[in-house]
Design a protein around this nucleic acid. Structure first.
Length: 258
DNA sequence: AGCACA
């Protein structure tokens, strides 16, 4: 359901002249039809993906207090977003909300959980048999390993017993499928994962048959994905004039329009 | 080759 203000402000906004295509000429959008006392209640958002949808911008902003409406101007080469708030304070607060320092993605650690003492898996003697493994297509190193070629008969306790003893081990997840089983193992850091990647490559687990396990880095490295997802904020009294800048990579640039 | 947790 749409916010209460979106319908109310749709008409006046639609009547505005189309905002100019360039950042150098600010649109006169902060002149809503309802009486104001020259407050700046509008936030200007640049750096949006070229295919951004109105709905996506709305979903991004709708939770912010005082949010009334948003719209996208796709006339220029890059889309620009505008968001209207009920007061200047709300607009300011919205800007501040996106100023929050980046939350570095912490796998499995994003929210508080009650620690449950799991039974420590029985330690498994280090594998003595190794089989050659072709690992032609691997992915960039990260702190998590993907393990395949485990066979159908692999015993989870054996997997846990082996990997949980490795230095830097954090946790692992085993995915059992119809015909094969894979698992992910998270370590404290890339170095720990890398040494396991090297040392246990091709290890033959007693329960896994005669072929060695294949250790790879996963397709998707969420740590990289999230730590490199910055939101850049630029404030400007005049649109496009940088006054304060934060972060290195831009997903969004949010300015106050005047 | 089989690739999750948010």
């Amino acid at each position: 359901m749409a916010g209460p203000g979106i319908h109310h402000f749709h008409q006046p906004w639609a009547q505005l002249p189309p905002p100019p295509p360039s950042i150098s000429t600010p649109p006169s959008i902060a002149v809503p039809a309802r009486p104001t006392n020259d407050e700046v209640r509008t936030i200007f958002i640049a750096g949006l993906p070229a295919d951004v949808k109105e709905r996506e911008l709305h979903n991004l902003l709708r939770w912010l207090p005082g949010f009334e409406a948003s719209q996208i101007n796709s006339k220029g080469d890059l889309p620009m977003g505008f968001a209207l708030f009920s007061t200047a304070q709300h607009a300011m607060a919205a800007k501040t909300a996106y100023m929050a320092p980046p939350v570095l993605y912490a796998p499995y650690g994003g929210y508080p959980v009650t620690q449950v003492a799991l039974p420590t898996p029985a330690p498994v003697p280090p594998p003595t048999v190794y089989a050659p493994v072709q690992n032609t297509k691997d992915n960039p190193p990260c702190n998590t390993l993907f393990v395949g070629n485990l066979g159908e008969s692999v015993i989870e306790e054996e997997l846990r017993g082996l990997f949980s003893l490795q230095p830097g081990y954090k946790q692992m997840k085993i995915l059992r499928h119809e015909r094969n089983t894979v698992c992910f193992i998270e370590f404290d850091d890339v170095a720990s994962a890398t040494s396991v990647h090297i040392n246990l490559q091709g290890a033959v687990l007693p329960s896994a048959g005669r072929t060695g396990i294949r250790i790879q880095y996963p397709f998707v490295n969420f740590i990289d994905t999230y730590t490199h997802t910055y939101i850049q904020i630029i404030f400007g009294e005049v649109l496009g004039q940088k006054i304060e800048q934060w972060s290195q990579q831009a997903l969004l640039r949010i300015s106050l329009t005047g």
